[in-house]
Write a protein that binds this DNA or RNA. Structure first.
Lengths: 245, 245
DNA sequence: TATCAGAATTGGAACGCACCATTCGAGGGT
DNA sequence: ACCCTCGAATGGTGCGTTCCAATTCTGATA
């Protein structure tokens, strides 16, 4: 009676196997086993093998040439452009994430926040302000807003852990995608003090709206990252299809 | 005899049909036809329908609930995070793109550029410098470097058109993906003058390495965008799989 | 020896089928 | 009237097969 059956698909097994093979000393432009060989080896259908390869190709790990085979990509693209929390992000950079100055309250959304979340301005939202640190140095000031209707009692449930993890565990909310607008700005003196940098230093202003699988706006956040310590890394892909929109 | 040359796959036809249906007045959370219905209507297999829906789901246009159906997402995510040239980018924002001060020459890569492109420092690269304009106002200073071995004679082939288009047409090089690092900086006086902003204004510094389908580094570019006029918009998605790497 | 045509290989698209897991509503039991 | 169960509907995973297109290999020929 496990609600979430840990179902690993066969395609996932193949994908992981291939990732291991590649990591284990397969160089760029080296050829992977053919789809039919893999299908025989794992005793699964070729279609399933293709699904595994589709994922690897999408992630830029391999490329395929019709009639020739499947090959390891020259550069293993750093898998960015993925939605990660600040904590995950910092850990990936080898820094210890932390939080200072946690404040949380509930208030009406107001025009700007309401618009960003697709709510009426009178709707109540949970507002969380944090100063995020990396190796104990302040890295960013973050204001998060979440519709209270979706996360009743979040203020009390807030622990030291990741906000995303809390959302998942307590409210079964999984952020699936987010739209971000990144701007540059200069820091007002009070923000500069909080970030331990000189006044009017350049900084990132990131406005992020996060959506769950159903496309509902779950979070709107504005973050100020100090420009001297932070950089944005992302991969972009060219759309493979012809769109007439 | 029959058109056995499906340049456009059947899945693409279904996808486009569904996009049209959605644009034509289907609201958020409204239900799409079931997979089996679509398969019957188009007289194709369900597998093909699923491929079309996979694409739409990936783009955030629809979401699927097992046992319930497929529904239109609440917010049509602006499909950013796609690799676009400056020209395409500006046009998408309703601005007229242009170029000033075009300069192109060929020189050894040097340590930094060579490293970024995965070349020996002695390898020769084409260097293109442009001041990019939007509605005749300078928007960014861009330095592009391309391995000369991949684009022999590019300097002469450079016209007024898009660089990406030239690469595609003349050299059959299609940029498929790119890694970008975005930093903030302040403009040195000479750069500030070129961009018509006060000295030491904040700006984006974007370092981009572009790869073709085989994962070969094709272009390395450094761009300085004025921070008062430019903002970065992108969508990020949460990785759907469990990675133990 | 060099070149070119054809066969073999390999990935790409598609079909039809079967079974499972989840959802949700209809119908029956209390 | 309410609750619970069961089954139909629907998406998720998987199989085996067929044909096509691009590439590569091979062998015959000039």
């Amino acid at each position: 009676m496990s609600p979430t059956t840990p179902r690993v698909t066969k395609a996932d097994l193949v994908r992981r196997h291939l990732e291991a093979v590649i990591d284990g000393g397969l160089g760029p432009h080296e050829k992977l086993p053919t789809e039919r060989e893999l299908a025989d080896e794992f005793e699964i259908s070729r279609l399933t093998v293709r699904r595994a390869l589709d994922q690897l190709e999408h992630d830029g790990v391999v490329y395929r040439v019709q009639g020739a085979g499947t090959f390891v990509s020259e550069k293993s693209i750093t898998k960015s452009f993925e939605l990660t929390s600040f904590s995950e992000d910092m850990r990936a950079r080898g820094l210890a994430p932390g939080s200072l100055d946690l404040r949380a309250d509930v208030a009406p959304a107001g025009a700007r926040i309401g618009y960003a979340l697709g709510l009426s301005p009178a709707e109540r939202v949970v507002h969380i302000r944090r100063v995020r640190t990396a190796d104990d140095a302040p890295m960013c000031i973050e204001d998060s807003y979440l519709p209270e209707a979706l996360v009743p009692g979040l203020v009390d449930a807030l622990g030291e852990g990741s906000l995303y993890r809390t959302l998942d565990r307590e409210f079964a909310l999984r952020l699936e995608r987010a739209d971000q607008v990144i701007k540059v700005t200069v820091l007002e003196p009070d923000s500069a003090v909080a970030l331990h940098v000189p006044p009017f230093s350049p900084a990132f202003l990131v406005q992020r709206t996060g959506y769950d699988t159903r496309g509902r706006a779950v979070e709107y956040a504005e973050s100020l990252y100090r420009g001297d310590r932070y950089s944005y890394e992302l991969s972009v892909v060219r759309p493979g299809r012809s769109d007439g929109t």
